[in-house]
Amino acid sequence: MTDLASTASVHPAAPRFRHGTIEAALGAALLLAWLIAAVGAGVFAPYDPNALDLVAMLAPPDGVHWFGTDHLGRDVFSRVIYGARIDIWMGFAGVIAPLVVGVTVGLIAGYFGGLTDTILMRILDITVAFPFFILVIAIVGVLGPGLVNYIIALALVAWVAYARLVRAEVLVVKRLEYVQAARALGFSDFVIILRHVLPNVLGSITIYAWTDAVMVILAGASLGFLGLGAQPPTAEWGVMIADGQPYVLQAWWICLFPGIAMVTLSLGFILVSDGLSRRLRVSS
């Protein structure tokens, strides 16, 4: 989580105004706001997210319950704030797990080439033959519903994009003179990959990771909505929307606010990603 904050705060402070700076700054501000809300949920949320109040069931938004209450009398505002913890954690873990797998595969395949590369790329071909969401559901279905199994499924399925990106970059980087030089000097492959190849490929995967976070959060919330992700009574936004679905006519607020939360968080990620890639394109 600290990683999100530090990455987010670096970009607005660019020395000169460039294309995409405003976007990236706006995105970073949205992300920062959600991050603060998530970390400080205990301070900002006026109620316990799971406290039942059967007297105040389906109460509309007012001064006491800003976003109203749900069918069990739980405070929707507090649940949205606490939900940020779950959904941001999901986005973070759900990007990191496939990123680590994909970067490792991409580095190994690109750097060593030959048979290793062929085998790894065949595994990649097979993985992309499955529709992403279907394979995730199938794996979660077999392992059992839950957030941790969702992250495991992502590590098994979503690594391919990172592996492709990294492999393509490594194929270019490994022909560069200083990498050749390091090899001639007798540095071990491991050291060369870690010290010379990896830093060069980090840029492009970072930009992809921001967009990937949106997909991970949307898919994770969809799983929560379907009953296959986070399990009730966890205050996860997808679960909350599923909870509110039967009452949406008389109590629209239960569904509306978690959805707005998702849109603003995703918007933060997309704006940062878009802004960063526009800046790179202009400066290059």
Partner: peptide, 15 residues
């Protein structure tokens, strides 16, 4: 198009 990418389909569907 950016908004379209951020809106969860299931949420829109429920509404």
């Amino acid at each position: 198009s950016i908004l379209g990418m951020t809106i969860p389909v299931f949420w829109l569907g429920v509404l």
